[in-house]
Design a protein around this nucleic acid. Structure first.
Lengths: 233, 233
DNA sequence: AGAATCAACTTGTCTATACAAGATGCTTAA
DNA sequence: TTAAGCATCTTGTATAGACAAGTTGATTCT
């Protein structure tokens, strides 16, 4: 094990053993360097990497402290539905139900941060796993950032994948909620009005602004979002 | 902007501009150092940080390549319900409905990886935002890893926070699904049988094994899971 | 042709040093 | 007492050099 890894391990032991509590200052770069007989840059690397992992918190000029452990918020992975289905070794297929342009309603205009009445592109696609409709994707696209959107074949490439190529995404925001199936969902996901659905709202940004807003609706009895997180090694 | 940040920006421009495609080798540390008239360590830092961000992929001895862009999966943050409510400047309160021990059913035994019939601890707590019940928390605890669980005051500390102190968590797994309200949810979340609920399953590990399994049920019309992700700066 | 070797290149670790920049507490002057 | 200034600590950036370790391709030998 390399020297900086030994120092990292030493610090983690102290924290996990309770010797260094949350908020306590850990030894400075120079102190660690002297204690382990290494150069400052090597000690620094240990502190740096632990800070990137969220174990420590550093502020220039002041000290390096043990970060608050309870704020280790967990993360949930959101995957591309096509990849997810294929990863499970099932057949993935998409059916394009609608593809066209329309005037932005007030709700959509607010989401895409454009004016009410501006023309936007719209797509309604159902994603299937074998013979089960697993996701209904309603998407509203800013035509300024994806002018050729309507000419694409979305049975071959998902809208998300296409948009990533023409407008590299820089930010994404998600919301997840549980709703009862609306008309569209009942019709295309083959479920009743008394079915719970998992709905994801996804807004994506590129350098030039908001690219699209998507509503992804899953039948609640057939789909789960999953995530796994490993903390300190 | 510091030198290594300039180099990072330069590389990102080349990639986003399409000059360097996925899988292409980017200039070596020495080449970059010469081109920008900096030391190798400075050029190295730029490549290193981009690799950590997942933009580049490096292998010792061989080259540094542009990583596959489409695998940038998004992440959704899962926060502590108490923190979340307090962060919104609302009053947080917890009501302990049940707290005790019982024999593990087959389902719970499988989740906690213990034997059927072993005694486990159990808690049922409702988390309130002001006068609205926002989360019903059913939790099954491995008593070997938290022997004093039943003596805690969960109106002051959430079970999750307490468990983190007695058994530092190393891993967590989440599943999110949409379900219709069951009897418990109807009763304690004050909703009808035809209400959609967002349900989180959370399993947490510490060094010694599985600590607990929790079912967190939210009323679908009052709660959304949210997440925001920023990619390359 | 196939295998072993080697040189050249890459990334990974580490050192010793220098200066910049932010934080903190003490001293001094008003 | 208050405020300004300063010394001294911290972390942040950058340099130039060294050696280790892994990859690749060309050369050489069998």
């Amino acid at each position: 094990m390399s020297k900086y890894q030994q120092i990292k391990a030493h610090i983690l032991e102290k924290i996990e053993g309770g010797h260094w509590a949350e908020g306590d200052a850990v030894p400075s770069e120079n102190q660690l360097a002297q204690h382990f007989s290494v150069s400052r840059m090597t000690a620094r690397r240990a502190l740096q990497e632990l800070a990137e992992q969220g174990v420590l918190s550093r502020t220039q000029g002041a000290a390096t402290c043990v970060a608050s452990l309870k704020n280790q918020s967990s993360m949930l992975q959101i995957r591309n539905i096509a990849d997810e289905i294929r990863a499970r070794d099932h057949q993935y297929r998409a059916r394009v139900i609608e593809l066209g342009s329309r005037e932005a309603s007030t709700g959509i205009a607010r989401q895409l941060k454009i004016d009410v009445g501006d023309r936007i592109f719209y797509s309604l696609i159902c994603h299937w796993q074998d013979d089960i409709p697993l996701q209904l994707e309603q998407r509203f696209i800013n035509p300024a950032l994806a002018p050729d959107y309507l000419a694409q074949d979305f049975t071959a490439t998902t809208p998300h994948e296409y948009l990533c190529t023409v407008a590299p995404l820089t930010e994404a925001e998600h919301k997840v909620e549980a709703v009862l199936a609306d008309d569209l969902a009942q019709q295309h996901l083959h479920i009743g009005a008394d079915s719970a659905c998992l709905r994801l709202h996804r807004t994506t940004w590129s350098r030039e602004g908001i690219v699209s807003h998507a509503l992804l609706t899953h039948p609640g009895d057939k789909y789960q979002l999953g995530g796994h997180l490993t903390f300190q090694p």
